[in-house]
Simulated scan of single mutants.
Amino acid sequence: MSRVLSMSVLRGAALIMFAVIAAAAATSAQLDPAAQRVEDGYAQLETVAMRVSAIEARRDMLEDLETEVSSTEQFNAWRAALRARDDVEYAALVERSRLPARLEEYPGAGGVAAAILDATGDPDLKVILLTGLERLAERGRFPRPYYESLARRHVASESDLDRETREIAESEELEVPGEIADIYLVYAPIAQEMGARRGQDQLIRWLLVDTMANEVDDESRARFLEGVNPIVGRIDDANTRYVIEVFEELGFDQIFEHVPSIAELGIAIIHHGNNLPARRSFLTIIEPLALRGEFDQQRYAVFYDRLAETEGRPQRYGTQDMCVDGERVPYTLEEPAGEVDIRRSEVGLGSIDDYFELIRGQYGGC
């Protein structure tokens, strides 16, 4: 098994990102003002969003690898030390990016703060982030129910890492446990790169959704979308190409066998892309896995529905919304809501009414 991706894939990834940056620079002067704000917010926060998501992907990978070790005590000690290092990095990222101040400028970046909040064990950092999100919620720029949920989970929390673990993390070179070293060395760079790209994917959408809901009226919506859609498209196209190259070089089946979280992360990126043949092809791969309970069934349901919506077909699981009179409602359903709820229960989803209550609370109006 190759320990790294081929140089052609790495060079291709670099050229793709260069093309994205160059194209963005060429068009930025022509953008609608609201679209320009989305692009500016993305440029300011891309690095922190990518790194936070990369760390999350590596952590998910370690969950996959836990079953491969015989000494869970050693593995857990190593993982805890990595988490301590992550906490140091989270604090540095927040400081370098001036994230609390950026939230005031670009409220859509609240998703980045929420992601760090859920990941860090640093109680002081939690207070800083909760304070920033509370201000956004008070302004109506971050969903109040979502903020309250975060606050209940994290307010007055204590560090979940003991002093000894932090000292180990700060003073020693952390050696990967031998039983997983080969797999880790192959897949950790891929997990983090895919995670970083997922961070791009999420950040641009958080900014877009917030800006469109709060700063764009009906008359200017078409011009806003005309400006922002190419930005989103460039990011999605570059990331989709990268994922397809990885899947083709290492094999989706092999990746899914060793580190399913990476395979599922790649599918999440393809899901947002515009490559319809790839989306159709991967649906045929993941559908039988999901229906057997081997692939994340909820991710499959969202993947299926979005492809159906793109192709102009009714959705099966009720995961996609459309805007009607300023309110998010289900996109056209394949069956009556009661039947859809049965299908949803089969893939671990709650009722469609509960789901849309959550969606409206988390994303607000449209």
Rank of each mutant, 00 (worst) to 15 (best):
D60A: 14
A114L: 07
V347M: 03
A91F: 01
A169Y: 02
V228R: 11
V232Q: 07
R51S: 12
A57P: 03
P107N: 06
L349C: 03
W78Y: 15
A92I: 03
L161T: 04
A25S: 13
L289I: 03
A301N: 02
L10A: 01
G108Y: 14
A25N: 04
R11E: 09
L133M: 13
R279E: 08
Q30E: 13
Q315W: 10
A169M: 04
A268I: 05
Q202K: 15
F252D: 00
V232S: 11
R141A: 10
I244T: 07
N274I: 13
G318H: 09
A213R: 15
L117G: 03
V324T: 01
F356T: 11
Q192N: 07
I204V: 15
T240W: 10
Q192R: 15
I255A: 00
A151Q: 04
D353H: 15
G361A: 07
R343Q: 02
L65T: 02
I204H: 11
D122I: 01
Q297P: 00
L307V: 03
M322T: 13
M17N: 08
V329M: 08
D341Q: 05
E215R: 10
F252K: 02
V329K: 12
L5G: 12
S2K: 11
E215Y: 11
R141K: 14
N229H: 14
L307S: 13
H271Y: 15
L333K: 09
Y90D: 00
E173Q: 12
R166T: 05
E327L: 07
T120H: 03
D201M: 14
A92T: 09
E339G: 02
I190D: 06
D32A: 12
V228A: 07
D296Q: 11
A25W: 07
A191L: 06
I285A: 01
L174S: 04
D325N: 13
Q30I: 03
S281H: 15
R328E: 04
T332R: 10
A14F: 03
Y42Q: 02
Y184S: 06
F224H: 08
R153I: 01
